[in-house]
Design a protein around this nucleic acid. Structure first.
Length: 728
DNA sequence: GTCAAACGCTTTTTT
DNA sequence: AGCGTTTGAC
């Protein structure tokens, strides 16, 4: 199996073949981190002869887990079967279901996502007569989440003022309500796992013995409670192998604590530290600019990033007049690239906030280019999809009141607040949950129905449906259940109003049915677990050959030939919410660093001089402070010309582009070409338009603008440094 | 209980 | 500006 090591450089070999024991791999971007991790596991199995089921590998995203699994299978085939591979949440979910007897919830607990949490918190606030405006559910939940990430239980919640006291109380109530719903939130999965280990050393040591080797990817983005889980699990064998890069820590806001690296060094004194510095991804220019950006952060160990690749092209900086034009410029450039035979999937556009994708989407549609949009809640956030999932959840776990309330009157069947109130009173009296007393109504001998009044009949009709579904769920496949819910509720008629959106929504339902089919044999539990833990970005069709749009956060771990990072404006990158805290600012910088280092060949940074503010009006922007950190020797400042004239002349709103008046000088200094390279009458060739004749050329705004007449395309104004024009 | 109009607020990043 | 939520009318 030494052939395994042949394909690695010496640093990587050192990491892959490291002796057992605590190991810390500090890996710069593009240094083959994932490769090392995958090979390490293969090495453990084939050289150390560790059985796969004694290995635990934790990744940051489901996608990374999937990817690693695939690579592993390629590397060592079926020997890799049985390995515990997944995100912290997936792994914890697995442990918690197995050990559910020791938990305050039952084995078929459900996982509350952000929306469910909000709904629950709103109920609690209402029950306690607290003003939602004063106590915003989101901010209360954020405080609770922070506490959980540090393993602070309600009793230990630190109180300094009245508001803290309220938060503490709400935290306690919230936990009670979750248990009543037989539910837990994302953070609870980690907290419960820790509690399990702390309260039952037997359980802790069972898993501790089981996992001879534990490997962790993206270690810099673990939070304290995740670290505590690792420490608990590694007590026995101490074979904790973590891989990370402090410069790529971008989840502080979610509780990620890069101090875990220090904790690790302290808790595992004899840990071996291995550095991976050679970069296999990017050109030296890209690396240099990345280093220039990240070196401005203090409190970090400086690393060199080197590559054997070429210097490569300079970084382009494009300044558009407004955000709409920014989007159009980027998309036009990609269009030109695709026409010039570039692979569509080589392109990626990255941005700070999801909202920025909208203008890009519009631009792509105008150009009739298909695209991949990562995340942004496109599918699983849709109401109709969530509705259907709520039906499933209620069937699986009737204690889930949030889901019950969501679907009990859906489609409207005359069960409003009053009827629900009556049901709640009934439940109160019998000491049952809403769902249980609802199902009780269905029992033929049930008399209490009368007490509920006129709504009683509607309620029991729904109860009848629900118990029918529960029976169906027991001995039928998921799609059968799905179809029954749809037909029993006449869901199609409900959402398929004649409108076009109705059609869209129905198509979403059908798409969800296709997802359900994938879990056909695996059952309800696995389906719901996946729905809760698998995010949109994990479901991207990898096969689609199209440019990708994604947030800088979502870009971590990926790489593309050509990367565009848009919106390099103050208040956006760095984001306004991060501007008054030193640590937050450092994280924004790391975010840009992550983005830059995704690029293999070519990097383009853009910004807009005016941008739509959240309020709808246009506002002037200020160039991002990070631009200053890029040495001008690495930059090629570009001002776009427009072959768009012909394309858009028909559309009135674009007519302003016919004049070059939007071209602006910007603040970035640049060496201007002394004289024009092109002269009137020259024969030239362009990658897209073919042969043409130069009509005119002049120096303008720091760059050379050439007017060329192309047969079949007409007169075009091109920027010499941009358009690849060859003189014939 | 349902529907429509008016209001008010919003945007950071995600398992 | 656009959306979701609340309010008010039927």
């Amino acid at each position: 199996m030494d052939a395994l090591l042949d394909r690695l450089n010496s640093q990587q070999q050192l990491a892959v073949a490291a002796p057992a024991g605590p190991t810390l791999v500090l890996a710069g971007p593009g240094s083959g981190k994932t490769r090392v991790l995958t090979y390490r596991i293969a090495y453990l199995i084939s050289v150390f002869k560790v059985p796969a089921h004694n290995i635990l590998a934790v990744t940051f995203t489901n996608k990374a887990a999937k990817q690693m699994g695939e690579r592993m299978t390629k590397l060592i085939g079926p020997n890799s079967e049985g390995i515990w591979l997944g995100t912290f949440h997936a792994i914890c979910g697995r442990i918690l279901r197995r050990e559910a007897d020791l938990l305050p919830v039952t084995k078929n607990f459900v996982i509350f996502d952000t929306d469910d949490q909000q709904a629950l918190m709103k109920e609690i606030l209402r029950d306690n007569n607290l003003d939602e405006k004063l106590y915003k559910p989101a901010s209360i939940l954020a405080a609770i989440s922070n506490a959980k990430n540090d393993l602070i239980l309600p009793e230990a919640f630190p109180v300094q003022n009245f508001r803290d006291e309220q938060t503490k109380r709400l935290y306690a109530l919230y936990q009670q309500r979750l248990v009543k719903n037989n539910a837990m939130d994302f953070d609870d999965m980690l907290v419960y796992t820790n509690q399990l280990f702390e309260s039952y050393p037997v359980v802790r040591d069972t898993y501790g013995h089981k996992f001879e080797h534990i490997l962790v990817d993206e270690f810099q983005d673990t939070n304290y409670s995740q670290y505590a889980i690792l420490r608990n699990l590694a007590r026995v064998h101490k074979n904790l192998y973590v891989v990370g890069d402090e410069d790529q820590s971008i989840y502080r806001w979610r509780g990620a604590d890069y101090r875990n690296i220090e904790r690790f060094k302290k808790d595992f004194k004899d840990a071996e530290v291995i550095l991976l510095e050679q970069n296999y991804r990017s050109t030296q220019t890209i690396l240099d600019s990345a280093v220039a950006v990240i070196d401005q952060n203090s409190n970090r160990t400086r690393k060199k990033l080197f590559t054997q690749a070429q210097t490569g092209e300079k970084i382009r900086l494009i300044v558009a007049e407004d955000d709409r034009e920014e989007a159009q410029l980027v998309v036009s450039d990609i269009r030109d690239g695709i026409r010039a035979r570039q692979n569509p999937s080589d392109f990626a556009i990255m941005y700070r906030t999801n909202a920025q994708s909208r203008l890009l989407e519009e631009a792509f549609r105008r150009e009739c280019i298909s695209y991949r949009l990562v995340g942004a809640q496109r599918f699983y956030g849709r109401k109709e999809v969530r509705d259907m999932i709520a039906f499933f959840r209620l069937i699986y776990n009737p204690l889930d009141e949030i889901s019950l309330k969501r679907v009990i009157n859906l489609p409207p069947r005359g069960i409003g607040d009053k009827t629900l109130q009556a049901l709640a009173e009934l439940a109160e009296k019998s000491g049952l949950s809403l769902g249980e007393s609802l199902l009780d109504l269905n029992r033929p001998d049930n008399q209490v129905m009368l007490e509920v009044g006129r709504g009683g009949e509607r309620l029991s009709r729904f109860a009848h449906m629900l118990s029918g579904w529960r029976k169906t769920a027991q001995d039928n496949s998921l799609s059968v259940l799905f179809d029954r819910i749809v037909s029993d509720t006449d869901y199609e008629t409900y959402i398929q109003d004649k409108s076009e959106e109705g059609q869209d929504r129905w198509e979403n339902v059908l798409e969800l049915r296709a997802v359900v089919m994938e879990y056909e044999t695996r059952g309800l539990q696995e389906f719901l677990e996946a729905m809760a833990l698998v995010a949109d970005q994990d479901t991207l069709p990898e096969t689609l050959d199209a440019p990708t749009m994604l947030t800088l956060h979502a870009a971590k771990g990926l790489e593309f030939e050509r990367v565009y990072i848009i919106g390099l404006d103050e208040m956006l990158l760095p984001h306004s919410r991060s501007c008054d805290d030193e640590e937050d600012l450092a994280e924004e910088r790391r975010l840009l660093y992550v983005g830059i280092t995704r690029a293999k060949k070519k990097l383009t940074l853009t910004r807009a001089q005016r941008r739509r503010s959240p309020y709808g009006t246009y506002e002037d922007t200020i160039a991002s402070r990070f631009i200053k950190d890029l040495p001008s020797s690495l930059l090629k400042q570009d001002i776009y010309a427009q072959p768009r004239r012909n394309n858009f002349a028909r559309e009135n709103e674009y007519s302003r582009w016919e004049s070059p008046s939007w071209l602006r000088n910007t603040t970035i200094p640049q060496d201007k070409p002394a004289k024009t390279k092109f002269k009137s009458g020259m024969q030239v060739r362009h990658s897209t338009y073919g042969r043409g004749v130069v009509k005119n050329s002049k120096l303008e705004y720091g760059d050379e603008t050439v007017e060329v007449y192309f047969e079949g395309h007409g007169l075009k104004a091109l920027i010499a440094s941009m358009a690849k024009l060859d003189i014939l």
